[in-house]
C-alpha cells in the first residue's frame, strides 16, 4: 500500500494538515518498500480554483492507494479519487503523522 498524508512540513514528525487540496506537503509512505517520499504541493496551493482536483490527480500520478487527511476532499477532488479507486480516511487533522498512521492501522479513522 502507498499511503499519502497531508502535512504541514516535509517531515515524519510534522503535524497533519486538515486541508486536502491546499495542504503544502504530502508525505507518501510505501508500506512494502518502507520508502518515504515528500511531495511538494505548494504550486497547487497557489491556484485560485481547482486545487483539490489537481492535488487528487497528483496523488493518482504518484500511484497512491490510500490518503489520510483531516477534513476530506471536496466534490471535484472526490470525483477524481473515485475514478482512481483511491481510499480516503479523514479526521486526522489534529494529529501528527505517526499518530495518524497508528490511528489508520487501528482502524479508528473514518472512511470518507
Amino acid at each position: 500500500m502507498k499511503i499519502a498524508f497531508t502535512t504541514k512540513e516535509p517531515s515524519w514528525d510534522s503535524m497533519m494538515e486538515a486541508r486536502f487540496g491546499r495542504a503544502e506537503y504530502v508525505l507518501i509512505y510505501d508500506e512494502q518498500s518502507g520508502q518515504i517520499v515528500f511531495h511538494d504541493n505548494r504550486e497547487i496551493v497557489n491556484q485560485e480554483h481547482g486545487a483539490g482536483p489537481k492535488m487528487a490527480k497528483a496523488m493518482a500520478d504518484l500511484g497512491v492507494d490510500v490518503i489520510i487527511t483531516g477534513n476530506g476532499p471536496g466534490e471535484n477532488a472526490r470525483a477524481v479519487l473515485a475514478q482512481m479507486n483511491t481510499v480516503v480516511y479523514v479526521g486526522a487533522g489534529e494529529m501528527n503523522v505517526a499518530e495518524a498512521y497508528k490511528a489508520y492501522q487501528d482502524g479508528t479513522l473514518e472512511k470518507f
Binding site: 486538515a18 486541508r19 491546499r22 480554483h49 483531516g70 477534513n71 487533522g93
Partner: peptide, 11 residues
C-alpha cells in the same frame, strides 16, 4: 468559496 476558505482547518 471565501467562507469555505475561512472554515478550512478550523477547530
Amino acid at each position: 468559496c471565501p467562507v469555505v476558505s475561512s472554515l478550512s482547518g478550523a477547530n
